[in-house]
Write a protein that binds this DNA or RNA. Structure first.
Length: 178
DNA sequence: ACCCCGATCGTA
DNA sequence: ACGATCGGGGTT
């Protein structure tokens, strides 16, 4: 397993999003294979948090690639993105689902159930214990084990649809899964 | 200071 | 398919 370097994320978001499929996300003692993502890209994407410019919440998206953008939503959930593209270009890939690989008992304990541990953006943040307070802005290309890894797995067929849970930007088919 | 609504989840 | 849920971002 080799860790993805910053140069992997410092590219067009649609490319990074599709290449992230099948990679292994590691946070602490838990990990899982990414099997669903969505791209959110800059000022011309009405569904992107950064479409109206930089704010206190979305400022991480304007930073350098390879950092986590974790935000709080629906009064009770978190969602985790990995920042892409060059500095000051606000874009990121939302990780919507992972297939649990390690730390499964820990995930079950955190989720308080044994099924559907991480098949949703809010669920996987609970399973991997990611919150805005502790994970927003963290570097996924640093020296710690936290990050994204390539173990050689290659998705067979990538499917593309509109993104989930949004009311604008539905014309863009920027959800990818396999 | 406050109002509105959401990149969701779980159950029906 | 739909309702619960509520913190806080963004604007006043």
């Amino acid at each position: 397993m080799n860790k993805l370097p910053r140069s992997f994320f410092n590219h067009p978001t649609l490319t990074v999003a599709q290449e992230l499929l099948g990679k292994v996300l590691v946070i602490g003692k838990t990990s899982g294979r990414i099997n669903e993502v969505e791209a959110y890209i800059g000022q011309n994407d009405p569904a992107c948090h950064a479409c109206r410019g930089k704010t206190e919440r979305n400022k991480v998206m304007f930073g350098s690639a390879g950092h986590l953008y974790v935000y709080f939503t629906y009064g009770m959930y978190h969602c985790a993105n990995i920042v892409t593209e060059k500095k000051e270009f606000p874009a990121a890939v939302l990780v919507r689902s992972i297939e649990p690989i390690s730390g499964i008992e820990l995930m079950e304990k955190r989720r308080k159930r044994k099924d559907h541990l991480s098949d949703g953006p809010g669920k996987l943040c609970i399973a991997l214990n990611m919150t805005k307070k502790t994970n927003n802005g963290m570097d996924m290309c640093g020296k710690t084990d936290d990050g994204v890894y390539n173990d050689g797995f290659i998705p067979k067929k990538i499917k593309k649809t509109s993104r989930i849970g949004i009311r604008v930007g539905l014309d863009k088919k920027w959800r990818f899964y396999y």
